[in-house]
């Protein structure tokens, strides 16, 4: 069984594409598509890596990231943030909240795969 990746993203076709490429690379991918109960899912799944969209219905990715970093059990989990917001202030906000890596949309599959491999030690 591969390492667990939790993908929190609200666009169904992005979920499907990213899940496909990660699954084919041997990762066990779980998905979730809204922000307001994302923390419950993170606690339940206890993933090795979280891929987090910045703009989610219910709660923003930035708020979720802050909560993850404030949680003793989950605080060290690597978080790759995917966002359509490429402005410097958004990147700075993500860095302040403790993002492990920040990637703007549209991204290439190869970059996502490389980032995931780099963030999780086998």
């Amino acid at each position: 069984m591969g390492k667990k990746v939790l993908l929190i993203e609200d666009e169904p076709n992005i979920i499907e594409a990213v899940s496909f490429i990660l699954s084919r690379d041997g990762w066990e991918v779980k998905t979730h598509s809204n922000g307001h109960d994302a923390m419950q899912v993170v606690r339940m799944r206890a993933p090795d890596l979280i891929i987090l969209d910045a703009m989610l219905p219910g709660k923003s990715g930035f708020d979720i990231l802050t909560e993850i970093r404030g949680d003793a059990a989950l605080g060290a989990t690597p978080v790759l943030m995917l966002t359509a917001r490429g402005q410097t202030k958004d990147r700075e906000q993500a860095e302040r909240a403790g993002v492990s890596q920040y990637m703007t949309k549209p991204f290439s599959n190869a970059d996502v795969l490389a980032a995931v491999r780099a963030l999780v030690t086998p």
Binding site: E11, I14, I21, K105
Partner: peptide
């Protein structure tokens, strides 16, 4: 627009 482009780019690459 960016979400749609992202999905198309990722899917077409696959």
């Amino acid at each position: 627009v960016i979400s749609a482009v992202t999905a198309i780019r990722s899917t077409s690459s696959i």
